[in-house]
Design a protein around this nucleic acid. Structure first.
Length: 588
RNA sequence: GUGCCCGUAGCUCAGUAGGAUAGAGCACCAGAUUCCUAAUCUGGGGGUCGUGAGUUCGAAUCUCGCCGGGCACGCCA
């Protein structure tokens, strides 16, 4: 575990410091000066809030009380060690016990140089060691177009996949297509009814069937090709045809819609394939060998009155033995596999494809399913973290201060496509990941179209455009920054605001790794907004104070110094924009 | 009734692994444009972090109880 930390933090100053404290802790333990230090409690605070140092740490605070020998001069020895670090300029241990640290300017300049050399690759690492990671998301049933209900998970999955790719995982973006089961049967019937209607037959859709216009379009296509052939055809052949045609066309629709947001899947796995391969028998054997299956009767849920409750004997999965609070049906009373059993088989199949780790992104309506699926994967892999499930709460759409209500049954749901047409890709992608996925989110369709402070997408893009405009302007002045090595003393020309921006830029690899670790892409947008704010603020200082402007034609060295961090700023922004999937405009 | 998630400023949300005086944006008030993009910035007011206890040097953060909201709760998918 500790090794992981060290690996993560290899390239940034936060990592270096943590690494130092970890080693120092080891030494204290080895020499019996302390018994045991809980290294996970060591923190580096790099926020701009702590004005007392460029960064600060609680290391002294949490360690001093663990010292066994009263004669051990901990504070003095720690200070000596810190002084010996070649990247620390000075430090002090405050009265309250925090260690406040300032870095050597040369050290930061070297990191800045590294950032610029790395360019597009800055932030990338091999932390993932090329492990195979499967991220399954969207997986909407192919019974209609993609709606806003799947939007959040779609962007979340796509961005997370990009983040993991950055830090060295081999990522597969996967979509699971539920193409068997009763919903699909209903879809097939609905399509045939539409087809029949086009031929003049008087059939009505039932309440649970799919009313959307898209099925009429599909029916027309069938009609054009086959005319009335299917009316008289063999029922089984006809159903096979309608089912397969509906699914393949609807999957195409779904793919086309997702491409609008630049979301592409590497693999579509069909439930029917899993069934055909009979994976479920393998799963059955595994669970049976572990004595996790039994014939039993599920208890009636307490509290809620369920009329017509009927106890039935069926095959149950002993998920209570692992993570769940209830055993779950594995076979229906009529002997068929449950949906859950088939889904579990699909997850076994992913395991058999030799992924090192699985991530699923589910809507909040599936929260109740998490523990049984985790239980299955624990039983299969013996690893409790092999499968990680992230849930998304709903997105409520607001327009003109009113909630847009949606009902799939009435067919008035809002499709991803229509939302894309009114809002555009960048705001959709940005907003979908800018809040924690577990928090229910309000999406205000009016505000995302505004081009001002209220709209963080534009706020960040504008910062990038401003930075770019300076770079372009500098080209007119023939200022080049190619020989960065000669300007290792750039800090002589920079003020505190700029140094703080540089520190933030250099924390990017750490932010990226934390984002992956917690699987929370909103950390990226927070980081972007923080940096944008610092940048705009600094920019405006140049209005009052000419010496703070980025370009000073009378002082080339100073201007070069500023252009260097400005370049770094653009590199980090561009990399982040790419990960989030929004555009970077040189001009706006 | 049970499980999971959420509750931070009037509104929308952050709070980076338990750290120093809880932060942004919007809204409200007052300012900044002969100057690299004012799609921006500066200043001001506004908080019992749902609530009560506990853990400790230290809690918005961890534990437990309560209150409020969301999702789900036999064989559907």
């Amino acid at each position: 575990m500790l090794q992981d930390y060290i690996k993560i933090f290899m390239i940034d100053y936060i990592s270096n410091l943590l690494n130092f404290f970890y080693k120092f802790s080891d030494k204290l333990e080895k020499n019996n000066i302390v018994k045991k230090i809980n290294k996970s409690k060591i923190s580096i605070d790099f926020s701009s809030k702590s004005k007392q140092g460029e960064v600060s740490s609680n290391f002294y605070l949490i360690t001093k009380k663990l010292i066994l020998d009263d004669n051990y001069k901990f504070k003095k020895i720690l200070s000596e060690e810190l002084k010996n670090l070649d990247y620390i300029d000075n430090h002090e241990i405050s009265v309250s016990g925090f260690i406040n640290i300032f870095f050597k300017k040369k050290y930061l300049a070297e990191h800045l140089q590294y950032l610029i050399e790395q360019d597009k690759n800055y932030g990338k690492s091999n932390f993932g060691n090329n492990q195979k990671l499967n991220i399954e998301f969207v997986s909407a049933n192919p019974t209609g177009p993609i709606t806003v209900a799947h939007l959040r998970g779609a962007v979340l999955g796509d961005v997370l996949a990009s983040v993991f790719q950055q830090i060295g995982y081999s990522v597969t973006r996967e979509y699971y297509v539920n193409d068997s089961g009763s919903q699909i049967q209903i879809l097939t019937n609905s399509l045939f009814k539409r087809y029949s209607q086009l031929l003049g037959y008087k059939v009505e859709l039932k309440e649970n069937e799919y009313p959307g216009n898209y099925l009429i379009e599909l029916a027309k296509k069938i009609l054009n090709k086959y005319e009335d052939y299917w009316i008289k055809a063999d029922q089984i052949k006809r159903e096979d045809y309608f089912r397969e045609y509906a699914i393949s066309e609807l999957i195409k629709y779904i793919q086309d819609d997702l491409i609008l947001l630049n979301i592409k899947f590497d693999k579509f796995t069909y439930e029917s394939e899993i069934v055909k391969k009979n994976i479920i028998e393998e799963l059955f054997l595994i669970l049976n060998n572990k004595k996790l299956l039994y014939e039993g009767i599920l208890e009636k849920p307490k509290g809620e009155d369920i009329e017509e409750w009927e106890s039935r004997k069926q095959l149950l999965f002993k998920s209570t033995e692992i993570f769940d609070d209830r055993d779950r049906a594995f076979k229906k009373a009529n002997g068929e596999w449950t949906y859950f059993a088939n889904d579990a088989a699909y997850h076994l199949e992913k395991f058999k494809r030799k992924y090192d780790k699985l991530i699923n992104i589910w809507g909040s309506d599936h929260i109740g399913y998490i523990q049984r699926m985790r239980s299955i994967m624990m039983a299969v892999t013996n690893k409790n973290d092999y499968l990680d499930i992230i849930t998304c709460q709903i997105v409520r759409l607001f327009k003109n201060n009113q909630i847009l209500k949606m009902s799939k049954r009435e067919g008035n749901f809002i499709t991803l496509k229509s939302l894309f047409e009114s809002v555009g890709k960048d705001p959709l992608r940005y907003f979908m990941i800018s809040t924690r996925s577990e928090t229910a989110m309000d999406f205000n369709m009016n505000k995302v179209l505004e081009k001002n402070n209220e709209n963080p997408v534009f706020y960040c893009q504008y910062a990038y455009a401003r930075a770019s405009s300076v770079i372009n302007k500098s080209k007119d002045l023939n200022i080049n920054i190619k020989n960065f090595n000669q300007h290792i003393n750039i800090y002589d020309y920079l003020c505190e605001d700029e140094i703080n921006i540089i520190l933030k830029l250099l924390s990017y690899p750490y932010i990226l790794n934390q984002t992956a670790k917690f699987k929370e892409p909103h950390r990226l947008t927070n980081y972007l907004e923080d940096l944008s704010s610092s940048f705009h603020s600094f920019w405006n200082k140049g209005k009052d104070n000419e010496s703070l402007r980025l370009i000073d034609p009378s002082n080339i060295k100073k201007t070069q110094s500023k252009l260097i961090w400005l370049n770094a700023f653009r590199i980090v922004f561009k990399n982040l924009f790419n990960i989030i999937g929004i555009e970077s405009h040189e001009k706006m």
